[in-house]
């Protein structure tokens, strides 16, 4: 089983599946634990936020305390086409659980899942609202088919925050479908896109089989998997709902974290480090966080140009 993302949904799914005693769990995430996460990201503690542990690492540590018999693999990195295809080819997971926070990554996951014929389970929430749907190659249409039926342009960034019960509700839908798949009880699967609002007490469900498009580039007769054929991730991307930009170096690097931290300290910058990343305060509310693979998060700006300037000033 692979969980893509280790935020609220990722943490909830991971704990439920590990307690259920699945054989192996891989969890991939690009972020680290912050104080604001603790309200709903159930695997993390104040100590993780103080240490700025990468979420994948903090999740692995906690999950191993919960059930030491489950093998946990933590990947600190961006879930792009290359990374997800490598996981698909090497591990052949039974199911992917979607715990990402954006549709770019979901469309990549959708392509990987259909190319390698592995089911994936969409989940998302904002405020008190959430929804979920299982996409199963050979049995259901895919996310692309579903999105094709609706007018585009509404994919804005959700900044409203999330209440914990909405997270748990989506997690419950996702885990239940995953368990049905693991025991191969295909007849029990819901076959619907389901949504709820725990504040307004609404519930809706839509049967998805009729939206299948024969010419779909992902699940149609002649698939081209457009979201894998070239890397659609920009080298710099504003993170959804956060005052932050992620920068990926053109070529992957391997930094020695200790040396990197020392370099920042010599410049008189307030610097903290753990084995996985360096966090530097730049003044003016800006912070730079650099991971060992050269990937960086620039906090305190939504301006890609400004973020790149900062990145190259210190790491160019």
């Amino acid at each position: 089983m692979v969980i893509v993302g280790a935020g609220a949904l990722g943490a909830g799914n991971a704990e439920a599946l590990v307690r259920a005693g699945i054989g192996k769990l891989t969890i991939i995430d690009r972020d680290y634990v912050e104080w604001s996460n603790l309200q709903r990201q159930q695997l993390y503690s104040e100590a993780d936020a103080i240490a700025r542990l990468p979420k994948a690492i903090a999740a692995k540590r906690r999950l191993e305390q919960i059930n030491s018999e489950v093998e946990i693999e933590a990947i600190v990195g961006d879930a792009g086409p290359e990374e997800l295809e490598a996981i698909a080819a090497e591990q052949r997971p039974d199911v992917w659980i979607d715990a990402t926070d954006n549709f770019d990554t979901r469309l990549v996951l959708n392509d990987v899942a259909y190319k390698y014929r592995i089911p994936w389970i969409y989940g998302a929430c904002v405020g008190s609202y959430g929804l979920s749907c299982a996409f199963i190659p050979g049995r259901t249409p895919c996310l692309y088919c579903l999105l094709e039926t609706v007018p585009q342009g509404g994919l804005t960034c959700d900044t409203a925050g999330i209440i914990g019960p909405a997270v748990q509700m989506v997690v419950s839908y996702q885990v239940a479908e995953a368990l049905k798949m693991l025991v191969e009880d295909w007849a029990a699967l819901r076959g619907k896109l389901v949504s709820f609002d725990l504040w307004t007490n609404e519930y809706a469900a839509v049967r998805i089989d009729a939206v299948k498009k024969e010419d779909c580039p992902t699940c149609g007769r002649h698939p081209s998997y457009p979201f894998l054929s070239y890397d659609q991730r920009t080298k710099a991307a504003v993170l959804c709902g956060r005052d932050s930009v992620q920068i990926r170096p053109p070529v992957q690097r391997e930094y020695e974290i200790d040396e990197l931290a020392e370099m920042f300290r010599r410049q008189g910058l307030q610097t903290e480090a753990n084995p996985y990343l360096v966090a530097v305060s730049l003044g003016g509310g800006k912070r730079l966080v650099v991971f060992a693979d050269g990937r960086a998060l620039v906090h305190g700006t939504k301006d890609v140009h400004e973020a790149k300037t900062i990145y190259y000033r210190y790491l160019g």
Partner: peptide
């Protein structure tokens, strides 16, 4: 009528 709208967060 059933109306389900997509959101991206998680």
């Amino acid at each position: 009528i059933e109306i389900v709208h997509f959101v991206g967060g998680g």
